[in-house]
Amino acid sequence: MNKFIRRNLPGYTFLFPWLIGFFALALGPILASLYLSFTRYDILTPPQWAGLENYEYMFTWDDRFWQSMKVTFTFVFLSVPAKLIFALGIAMALDKGIRGIGLYRAVYYLPSILGASIAVAILWRQVFEANGVINSILAIFGIAGPHWMGNPDYSLYTIVTLAVWQFGAPMLIFLAGLRAIPNDLYEAAEIDAASKTRKFFAITLPLLGPVIFFNLVLQTIDAFKIFTNAFVISGGNGAPADSLLFFTIYLYEEAFKYFRMGYASALAWVLLIVIALFTAIAFFSSRYWVYYENERD
C-alpha cells in the first residue's frame, strides 16, 4: 500500500486539479441528469417522475430522434475515415524531412485550433454560399454549383468537409507515430527492392496500428459530439429540413428551446451509450487488427 502511494503520488498530484473539477463540478450534474432522464422537467416546476416514458417515446414515436441518429451516423461514417486518411497522407508528406517543417506543421494544425470557433463556421457558411468561393471556382469551368447550404441533399457534406479540414490533431499524432518506426525496416525492404506501395502496406501501416487505433477512437468520439459548427451553419435548428439535425443539436433544442430537460437528459444518456458501444467495439476488434511490435510472441 505504502509502495503504491509512493509510486503513484506524483501522478495523482498532477491529476488533482482535474479530479477536483470532476468530483465538484461534473459528477453531480452527470448523476442528476441520469435521474432527470426518468422525469418530466421544465425547469420552472419541480421534476415529476415519469418512469421510462422518455425512453419509450424516443424509440417508438419520435421521428426526429431517428432523423438525428441518421444524420449523426452518416456524418461519423463519412468524416472519420476521410479525416484519418487525409491526416495520414499529410503526415507522410511532412515526414519526408522538408525544410521549414515546423512552419508547415503549424500551418496544417491551425484549422484544428480554429475549428471549434464560431468564426470558422460562419466563414464556412460563406464559402459554400450561392455566390461563395466554391461556386465561383466552379463557374470558371462553366459549372453552375448548387446552393450547398440551402439544399438538404448537400448540406451535410459541407460539414463533413469542414471536419476533414480540421485534420491537425490526428496528423500530429500520426507524425509522431511515423517517426517511431525504426528505419532499419525500410532499409531492409530497400535491399529487397520492395516498391513504395509494398513498403506502405507491409511496414508503415502495420506498425502504425496502435496510433491508427488511438486516432480512430478519439475521432469517433469527437465526431459523435459535433456541435458548434453544425449549430452555427444550420442556424441552430438543423435546417434545412432537418438535414443537419445532429444528435447534439436535437438535444440542445429539446433542452434549451423547448425546456424538456427530462427528455434531453434521456437523449444525453442514449448518446453516452452509443459512444460507449462504439468505443467498446473498437477496443474489442483491435485485438484482430492492431499489431504491437513488442508483443511479438
Partner: peptide, 12 residues
C-alpha cells in the same frame, strides 16, 4: 428568388 436561395436564408 430561387427556392434554394430562400431556403438558405432561414435564421439569417
Amino acid at each position: 428568388p430561387p427556392a434554394e436561395q430562400s431556403a438558405s436564408l432561414i435564421g439569417s
